[in-house]
Design a protein around this nucleic acid. Structure first.
Lengths: 235, 235
DNA sequence: GAGTGGTCTAGACCACGAA
DNA sequence: TCGTGGTCTAGACCACTCT
């Protein structure tokens, strides 16, 4: 009883969809019909439908009606926190291996869309937990004169934070590519695992709103214990 | 000019946030102020704010005001399509290795939350593209008498489709765990890769609305070429 | 032309927070 | 008490689709 009217309407329609009384592709009752059925104004019904559209249950076709969606089976929410430890957490540390300005490799130049003659900032870090390496992290950013490079800041910054000094995080597109590979010599040294160990690889590409690259990086997570979690559900 | 009023208001506020004129934690002008500023009714302003809330730019605190959000830096949209080939696509095939009813291993029983004495349905498949194996797939579901096991259907069904005969896909929670491992004997045979090759592992757990497991599966993707993509951005 | 969804108004009452 | 956001109404006009 306490719930607002529009929530009751939302629940009613969700229930019909979950009970498979309404199925994907079916049209649902028109807004005016729902007004009569629930004795509410049209704006209230529209608020309900907006919620259902938002949650992915239905979609609207102007001039025709509202239809039940095909459930999206291939979009998940991935939680990825870049494993930046809290600077105050004694168990977690960051080992800053290298901060440099150099010319890009082919791979770096390709991903940052810059010519071979343009310098890039390189940052290599190892994240430690209870003195054990848990991630090896390499990041590249186009070099501009005047970038402040402060060791303390670099150690405890996420990638978006590093570039956010010039770009708003709201105006940033982040793309991840998740792969698997084997540890080579360099990585096995830093992560203290045998050569040939399995690694989870996360490539991170930062783009501005014009889809121009502003940063590219790779994180290596050792062993079978490291895992990413993702989830999909309808509320 | 053509755009609706509420979209103009949305754009105006988004611009202020992106220009860092409004920053995370800042309060934005009250609804009544925005009404005066844009000469629109309060419902129109509220529609704009609903859009901004929805896109993650702001949040509301009843009795106080609307505030600029901290941008979410660790939630991404992961695209994962289970690699089920189109049955009509000649280049893509499914090799059904095994369909069986058996007692669960410890791992399977643990993930499905069932006792060791309760049978499970096991389905093992290899997905082929241009005759090359691209995925090795194992799925487990609690066994109920009366489950129709039709080979054709199993070959070309996603996991949610298999269990959807009893559960609506709208009433399903899907959880993924993404790991890395090395190919063992069984997997190397099916995927035609050397033992010790890197593999991307995707564990998929299906739960009903009471969070009870209704299916658990593992997919192995061979080599460094296989990758998952994820993205995060503000519109 | 009748029905649909999309936008918008000018009011109203409520619960809540701050002073 | 006053300002805030949350809910809701009873209208209105528009563009669109279908017949």
């Amino acid at each position: 009883m306490g719930a607002p009217e529009y929530i009751k309407i939302v629940q009613h329609i969700k229930d019909r969809i979950i009970k498979q009384d309404l199925n994907p592709g079916d049209i649902i009752p028109s807004e005016n019909l729902l007004c009569e059925q629930f004795n509410v104004s049209r704006m209230t019904v529209r608020k309900s439908l907006a919620v259902l559209v938002n949650d992915g249950y239905i979609y609207s076709v102007p001039g025709k009606g509202n239809y039940v969606n095909e459930p999206n089976v291939n979009e998940y929410i991935l939680y990825y926190d870049e494993m930046i430890p809290d600077p105050d957490d004694a168990g977690c540390k960051v080992h800053l291996l290298e901060v440099d300005v150099e010319l890009p490799s082919y791979e770096v130049g390709y991903n940052l869309h810059i010519p071979k003659t343009k310098h890039v900032v390189v940052i290599k870090r190892v994240f430690l937990k209870e003195s054990f390496p848990i991630a090896y992290d390499i990041k590249y950013m186009p070099y501009y004169r005047g970038i402040p490079i402060v060791e303390k800041e670099i150690s405890y910054s996420t990638f978006p934070e590093m570039v956010a000094q010039r770009k708003s995080p709201f105006a940033m597109i982040k793309k991840l590519k998740i792969r698997s590979t084997l540890a080579d010599g360099e990585i096995s040294t830093h992560l203290e695992v045998p050569i040939g160990s399995p690694l989870l690889v996360i490539e991170e590409l930062l783009l501005d709103t014009q889809e121009l690259p502003i940063g590219w990086g790779v994180i290596y997570l050792p062993g079978e214990s490291a895992a990413l979690d993702a989830m999909a559900s309808f509320e």
